[in-house]
Structure formats: C-alpha cells, structure tokens
Amino acid sequence: MSIAAQQPVAVPIAAPGAVEKPNRLLTLLQAPAVIVLFLWMIVPLAMTIYFSFIRYSLVNPDVKGFAGLENYQFLTEDESFWPAIINTVLLMGAVLIITVVVGTLLAVLYDRDFFGKNVATLLVIAPFFVMPTVSALIWKNFIMHPVYGLGALFLQKLGLHSIDWFGDYPLISIIIIISWEWLPFAFLILFTSLKSLDNEQKEAAAIDGANPFQLFLFIIVPHLQRAIGVIVMIETIFLLSIFAEIYTTTSGGPGHATTNLAYLVYSLGLQQFNVGIGSAGGILAVILANIVAYFLVKMLAQNLKGR
C-alpha cells in the first residue's frame, strides 16, 4: 500500500491563483455563514460579560444596577467555587493523562497486524459513539452499583468488600467514565497519525540496532507529538464543559465533591437563578478555553500554510 493511498486527504493549501479582489457575487455566497457565526460568537458572549457586571437575580428582581466586580467576588467567596476549580482541573488533567497514555500504548499495539484487528478496532472506538447520558448510566448502574454492579459482584466472589464508587470515590468514578468515553478519540487520532509514520524510518532504526523501547521513545513518540498536542487541546475544550455525566450520576455531590465549573454555572445560573454570579463563572470558563484555543489556532495556521 502506498503512502499516498493510505492518506488521501491532505490539508488544503490555498490555490496559487488566489485573487486579490473578491468578486462581490461570490462574497455573497460566503456571507451568510460568516454572519451567523459572527452573531453566535459575539452576542451571547457580550451578554455573559454584561450580566457578569450587573446585579441580576430572578429571585430578587428588585436588586438591580451596576455591580462592578461584586459578582466575581461573590463567586470566589462561594464555598463551592474553589472545589469546583480544583475538580475541573483534576478532572481535565486526569482524563488527559489517561487518554493520551493509554491511547498511545493502544495505538502502538494496534499498529501491528493481528487476527481480526479491524473488528477489534471497531470495539475499541465504540464508546465514542455512545451518548454521554447513556455512558454515565450504564457505568453507574451495571458496573459501579455498590450492590448489584458487576464490580461489586466480582469483588464479593473474591471475598472482598464491594466499593461504593459514587459514595466513597465520586470524582474518581466520574474520571473513569469520562476517560472511557474519550479514550477512543485519543486512540483513533494517534492510530491514524501512526499510520503516516514512514516504515523505512522504523526499519532504518531497527537496522541501526535500536531496541523496541528506543524505537518507541525516539521515533514513535516524536512523530506523535503533534497528534498529542491536538488531542490535548481539543479534549480540553470539551472537558471544560463536562456536564451531562455529572448531572446524571452525582448532581455535583456528595457535597461539592464532583461539582465542576460547568455544573457550578448551571447550578448558580439556572437552578438558583442568580444570573450575575453564574455569568461570572461562565466568563472564567471562556478565559480558560481561550488560552488553550490560542495555541490550537496557531498550530492549525501553521498547518494551513503548509508548514
């Protein structure tokens, strides 16, 4: 199989005939998409910023006016704020590490040929297509349930005490579920990226006497660097907004043990109807995401220019 046939889709590079003066009619074709996306980007964000600086609570409609940084102050003084920040970071960090490390090892394994590999690959990527609410509930009930869960039955067979996953290790349970959902994503990207690694390079290294570990460290890992960067950035954006899994399993509890930034904003803004403080939380999430997005867009720009 030639390399060209393996990877038919190249990142497009602007045609050499790029014209300086755009045809008006043609610009019209592009305008609707640009306009709706512009509105989508600017209107809600402007509203969040505005809300975050005013006193706005549906419970106390009489309290109005400019709030300055009050909302941000209330937010940071809220007893669930720091747990939420810490949980968000722990959740993101743990899921990123697990998916990238396990994904890399799996990709290397699946880069080799073995019987029924194509079918096995389908099984490995399957969790990615399961909707988050279903993933959360099958793990919560069938695997992690303290009495009837398969995990509990298995431990009982071994004569051990069963584990009350969501009672005793709530955040770890959430991390396990979300890692299971995102592992296929990391695997699929790393696996695809590995396929574009030149076989000759591997062979040359083998002839030079590199052992499998050296091959992994000095040929495979550097090759995957870019793919890993992409995974980290894209997962970060999504992991910042993890919500459905927490909503269906723990509702942020027990206490604040599984409250993350997204769940906090939901509970402040849509449950307690404190729009101002909820919005301040939203702005924090936007700032975090923008830092990540900056690097991602920079990398994609390099890609477009053909490196």
Partner: peptide, 14 residues
C-alpha cells in the same frame, strides 16, 4: 474554527 473553541458553559446563561 475558533468559534468552536467557546466552551458551551460560557454562554449557557445568556
């Protein structure tokens, strides 16, 4: 593409 980078939670309230 950069519009995709907006976390949903940031604009949930508005």
């Amino acid at each position: 593409l950069s519009t995709k980078m907006m976390p949903a939670v940031g604009v949930l309230v508005p």
